[in-house]
């Protein structure tokens, strides 16, 4: 290609990608834009990105006070942290056993993991809902957490990683006097940090954003995670008072967007690995 052709090709590439990029980003831009505007400007037919009269403080203040938005966020943090912690505590030893310990029934057990990997969670919602009622934990944090404490995907991912660690490392650790459980915590997990990070991102993103299960088992705002919280807020608002609602939506998506921008590569690798299950 000649040089002018190259410049032209480059220009076309940027033109197209900037267009598609701005279309993809439009909802985010619009969300932030509306969150800054007073009600009067929402109805004006001439649309502008920035408000004529800044109303950001009012909108965000209403979002944070009228709906228990901070509470939703806190719930999100509690639920996501509890799920992630339990998942790692339960999945890592299991993955180690499947990868490095020779015991009868290992294949059968791995079969169960694969079956678990195959079943979408929505299919199980009904029996899990009944179980949740039976356990008397309806409308509690426990209800939000318990179906997810074991993650077949986590077991699968960790097992793949652990299998790539040489057996000699495990043997050396056994000779050094480590128990099987301390091999998991002191050797296997620290050596598998990329897998831990990828799994953590998948786990937190999916449970922060999950609507289906919280919708079933949580009724009071006290326990609602962010996604369900913002939907409840939207239903309560009912009118066209978009300012506070958009402020609320911005607050809900902000933590993940900021983390994403800070650790883009990890998010993309983690989430694509997660979708590959």
């Amino acid at each position: 290609m000649t040089l002018p052709m190259k410049i032209l090709a480059g220009a076309v590439r940027h033109a197209i990608l900037l267009t598609t990029g701005s279309l993809v980003l439009a909802p985010f831009v619009w969300m932030v834009s509306l969150s800054l505007k007073p009600p009067a400007e929402l109805f004006s037919s001439s649309f502008t990105l920035l408000p004529q009269h800044w109303f950001a403080v009012e909108n965000y203040a209403r979002a944070l006070t009228e709906a228990p938005l901070p509470r939703y966020m806190l719930n999100g943090v509690i639920v996501c942290a509890a799920i992630l912690l339990l998942q790692i505590m339960i999945c890592a030893p299991a993955a180690y056993a499947l990868a490095k310990v020779r015991f009868a029934g290992r294949q059968v057990m791995f079969g169960f993991v694969l079956i678990g990997l195959l079943i979408p969670h929505q299919v199980l919602a009904l029996p899990l809902f009944i179980l949740c009622y039976g356990l008397g934990i309806f409308n509690t944090y426990a209800a939000l957490i318990f179906p997810f404490v074991v993650s077949p995907f986590g077991i699968f991912l960790f097992r793949q990683f652990f299998m790539s660690i040489p057996d000699d490392i495990v043997h050396a650790a056994r000779l050094d006097g480590l128990s099987e459980l301390s091999i998991v915590w002191r050797i296997m997990l620290p050596m598998s940090l990329p897998a831990v990070l990828a799994f953590s991102i998948v786990s937190v993103v999916s449970h922060w954003n999950d609507l289906f299960w919280p919708l079933l088992v949580v009724r009071s705002q006290e326990f609602m995670p962010p996604s369900l919280g913002i939907v409840t807020f939207a239903n309560a608002e009912a009118g066209n008072d978009y300012g506070p609602l958009m402020a609320g939506a911005t607050v809900v998506v902000a933590p993940l967007v900021i983390s994403f921008l800070a650790a883009q590569r990890w998010f993309i690798e983690g989430l694509t690995a997660g979708s590959i299950k």
Partner: peptide, 16 residues
């Protein structure tokens, strides 16, 4: 292994 009072040097060294 840890009770046997033996130590081992591995071909791959198996350092953590």
């Amino acid at each position: 292994p840890k009770q046997r009072d033996v130590a081992m040097v591995f071909q791959s060294y198996a350092l953590y």
